[in-house]
Design a binder for these strands. Sequence first.
DNA 1: CTAGGGTTAG
Length: 618
Amino acid sequence: MNAATTYSPPYHRRHHQHHHFQLPPPQSQPSIVSIPTQKSILDLLNSKPATFSLQSLAQIHALALKTGHFHDHFVSGTLLKCYANPRFHNLDSAIQLFRNVPSPNVFVHNVLIKACLDNGEPLQAVWLYYELMMNDAKPNKFTYPTLLKACGDGGIVAEGKQVHCHVVKLGFAGDGHVKNAMIDGYFRCGDVGSAEEVFDEMEMPDRDEISWSVVIDGYIKSGFYKEALEVFNTMQSERIRPGKFVLTSVLAACAHLGALDHGRWVHAYVRRKKKSIVMDAVLGTALLDMYAKCGRLDMAWEVFESMKEKEVFSWNAMIKGLAMHGRADDAVELFFEMQRRKFRPNGITFIGVLNACAHSGAVEQALKLFNSMENVYNIEPEVEHYGCLVDCLGRSGRLEEAEELVNSMPIEPNPAVYGSLLGACRIHGNAELGERIGRLLLELEPNNSGRYALLSNIYAKAERWDDVAEVRKLMKERGVKTNPGSSMIELGGCVHEFKMGEGCHPKMKEIYSTLKVMIERLEMEGYVPNTSQVLFNIEEEEKETALQYHSEKLAIAFGFISTKPGETIRVVKNLRVCDDCHSAIKLISRVYGREIALRDRVRYHHFRDGTCSCKDFW
DNA sequence: CTAGGGTTAG
């Protein structure tokens, strides 16, 4: 606490500082007026609910009891709402208050249901709904949006469907708020079909901007990014004007897809409508994040600098953007800059900087930052932070220290932590540790195909083909589905997706022949396919074929036939890039004089003139 | 006096 800036009230005020609600002194008014009315209590509660202390609330509570106004449901409900403010973390006292309300009506029930939801107790909210029905307090149209949201948050589909039935039976199915909440709830429960059904049956004017927003966001949360953009297009063709909520969601979809042109369109739209669409911290952050994830760190920075309103998450997004592009020093510099601007780093900030260090081999820096978390910032490292550190140590070849950290960390390591260690074993060819960790992971996550692939690669690198075959067999026995590699490229306002060996693209013939010519040209330049990372011990020729058609190569070949010379080719891949593709693309960038920006599952690779921005460390 | 939508990290 800084004494110089602390305001000390005069002595007599200290004792009365909770009495903000005091009425004018009696001498200035007839004494009868000093008995608070119902309205004056409500005014007190509604004046500055965000700044109350619990004590002042308790005093108003006492006042309400003393004057008898507590019996009024408006008063007790509003009081309840104040107690339930999530910043108090004090849902229990709200519930206790509810128990003391004589025959609570719908309003009081509704407030408590919302209170449970806001305090992270969706199941309790649903339970209270049953209680409401038992109490004979008929639900009204205000009850259902909150309740449906609770079902969605709690992921309870069956109860949600029952609530849906109640909505219909009690005649609230025509309400726009209720329907939007229903769509949102179905999406949250993963029932995309039912969500679509409710939306499709809606008609104007119920189907408003919020309905579209819920659907677009629902698709994004379900991983259907292309569909989200399609819905956005339909929305515009129906002349519904998107506001900042929809635009923020759309930008998130663009970020995932690497759809730079779509994202730029949104940026231009926001600028054009700057009178009606205010660029707040959330929208600005979504915009800069889109640019960073679409490979335009320069534009991300420009947006970040121009943002008038920044929040911690804006700084986090920018730090993460720098990290993703391998700019560790700048990320760390920004981490200190945000503090000079009086922003407090949080746990996510540290994930960003630690990640940046991991991708540039800055082990000492990472250790220093990690140690400062508790010592300087009073942030308890979570399992993700340990994961970043394990990753950082492991990538740099300090495997013993990484393993030591995993064994000594004070919280239970999760599969991701072991995964980092396993990845490091692959990079550094440590089959002994890799085998132990790999076997452990195959038991912890028997359905994660990536783990089998890594372990198999480790065995392959050590030429232990029997073990490779055994892993393959195990995978087959357990019926594990492989996660196919897929690469996306946006061209002509359309996102194209390629999967290995898939031939359904209309220009597939041309793409394959272009790729064949390209690889022949590379081979003349001395390129030899590097097959060490191919999953299984298949015949050498077969391996080469498989490599040739890795999805990023297909996407790049398509980029070549669809762009002008000199244009950067931008590709987004769902998995990590393999050694072979990485060296092939380096060569392509030199031989064809093209810049290629490839985002893999964790970072960007900017290929230019035969080199990669990751300096071959990834 | 009560009800529906957006951001960063894994």
